[in-house]
């Protein structure tokens, strides 16, 4: 592991409520084995396989640590703290691919009609309309705005489909946050986040969070929905080759619909992210 950018990041390593008081849990991060611990008094700590103590903090329902010394605190998701929202930890799924492949798939709308048929998209409504992507230099994030995509049964009240508005944020090389127009409260957004835990360069634990304004669905319903969505992505991700995300523009064939992915790859390349990526095509 000689990627200082990734080394000095906060990384997700588990679900907060799964680590009970007095319990220890083992996990993997950046090819190292870690032990996570919550003592009887509730204090969190972690240890690396070489005996080094590591910081451990709880945020957004998940546990986070670092093997380096991060320059900045963990990124902010303001909405998660709004009092009338339900924050649901929607599960963790092991995926046999790199963390950046998981993030890129999370940013992609074009696959909705083919992979999430009947849920997030449906043929023949396949067009990805023009949208804006930029890199916010100050916050050091990739931001895609004005994204619209047809979703069947978009409104809770009606059976018909409609265009849903999306905003995507990539505040961390392995984390992305999606804001999606809310069917229950127009003008507000549901928030869905993907936090990818890089166990190794080609083994990832994909954790998802949903922060929603929804007083009708139970936590279990929300969890089932998100897991069934990711269950459709997993076989695609595991059949994507090479597993590490190619940063060379000539490795694959981008189209206009892929502008958020093009910006994400460029951003990783500019940062010199090497872990989980490939610099050269061929």
């Amino acid at each position: 592991m000689n990627d200082p950018v990734i080394l000095h990041q906060w990384h997700v390593v588990g679900i907060d409520e799964e680590l009970k008081a007095g319990a220890v849990k083992a996990t993997r991060l950046l090819d190292r084995r870690l032990g996570l611990k919550r003592d009887a008094g509730g204090a969190l700590s972690a240890e690396c396989d070489d005996g080094h103590p590591l910081p451990l903090l709880a945020r957004y329902g998940f546990l986070w640590t670092t093997l380096g010394t991060p320059e900045r605190p963990l990124f902010d998701i303001r909405e998660a703290d709004e009092p009338d929202r339900v924050n649901v930890v929607t599960g963790s799924v092991a995926v046999r691919t790199s963390a950046p492949r998981c993030i890129e798939n999370f940013l992609d709308m074009g696959h909705f009609p083919f992979v999430h048929t009947g849920l997030l998209g449906e043929e023949p409504h396949t067009e990805v309309k023009e949208y804006d992507v930029r890199i916010d230099e100050e916050k050091d994030e990739v931001i895609a705005t004005d994204c619209r995509f047809y979703q069947p049964r978009a409104a809770a009240a009606s059976a018909g489909g409609a265009d849903i508005e999306y905003i995507y944020r990539v505040p961390h090389p392995y984390c992305a946050v999606l804001y999606k127009s809310c069917p229950f409260d127009r003008g507000r957004f549901d928030v869905i986040a993907m936090f990818a835990q890089p166990m190794s360069e080609e083994h990832t634990f994909a954790h998802t969070l949903m922060s929603v304004v929804d007083d009708t669905s139970s936590t279990t319903d929300i969890r089932h929905f998100q897991l069934s969505i990711f269950g459709q992505d997993k076989p695609i991700l595991e059949n994507q080759l090479p597993r590490r995300l190619p940063l060379d523009p000539r490795a694959e064939t981008p189209i206009r619909a892929d502008r958020s992915s093009i910006f994400y790859r460029r951003w990783l390349r500019a940062k010199n992210v090497a872990y989980g990526t490939l610099a050269q095509a061929g």
Binding site: L241, P246, R250, A251, P254, R259, I262, A281, G282
Partner: peptide, 15 residues
């Protein structure tokens, strides 16, 4: 190792 062929330069550009 599987060989991954680079696509042509023309295709790597958008549009």
């Amino acid at each position: 190792a599987a060989e991954f062929r680079p696509v042509s330069e023309e295709l790597a550009k958008v549009p």
